[in-house]
């Protein structure tokens, strides 16, 4: 996955970059399967296919060529800035890493309750469905509203005719 990400950033053809992003996405779906999350794996596979279709449709309507990279001091400044970001975040995250719970034994403060009494309270064996629709219904309602707003914005942006001024 990390190789796919590096490829997606570095390759100079945009179609190849999108395919490299596909490597990352399908690798993510495999990781979800290994991490015992079948719901996420199903959604991730289909979403990855659809997002590849969307970005490819946009590229086919425009141009598949990457922009020319400028040379000079500005370029070097950008690279150095990126590297500094990289190192600072990496070091600070390694410091933080000690505070996280050990891998493989999460702290089940809320979820312990959900696991223990989810079946009795909701009657749904799939605990993920029970959480997103019963315990945390407001969250899902908000997400559905965000999805609606995003689609309305997309239609407004892409509409063929605007109002004449």
């Amino acid at each position: 996955m990390i190789l796919g990400a590096i490829l997606a950033i570095w390759v100079s053809n945009l179609v190849a970059a999108v395919v490299s992003m596909g490597i990352v996405g399908f690798g993510l779906a495999l990781c979800f399967l290994f991490l015992e999350a079948p719901d996420l794996a199903i959604v991730q596979i289909v979403v990855e296919i659809l997002s590849l279709v969307i970005i490819l449709a946009a590229i086919m309507k425009t141009t598949p060529e990457d922009t020319k990279e400028a040379r000079g001091p500005l370029r070097m400044t950008m690279y150095i800035g990126g590297a500094v970001f990289f190192i600072i975040f990496l070091v600070s995250f390694i410091r933080i890493c000690g505070l996280l719970p050990e891998f493989g034994s999460p702290v089940l403060r809320m979820a312990g309750d959900y696991i223990g009494s989810g079946l009795q309270k909701t009657g749904a064996p799939n605990l993920v469905a029970a959480i997103i629709l019963n315990f945390r219904g407001y969250d899902t309602l908000g997400e559905a509203t965000v999805l609606f707003a995003a689609v309305v914005g997309l239609i407004v942006v892409l509409r063929k005719v605007g109002r004449k001024r």
Partner: peptide, 11 residues
């Protein structure tokens, strides 16, 4: 497995 992060990621 902890179902709470899975529910958040799913949406």
């Amino acid at each position: 497995v902890d179902p709470l992060p899975q529910a958040l990621v799913l949406t």
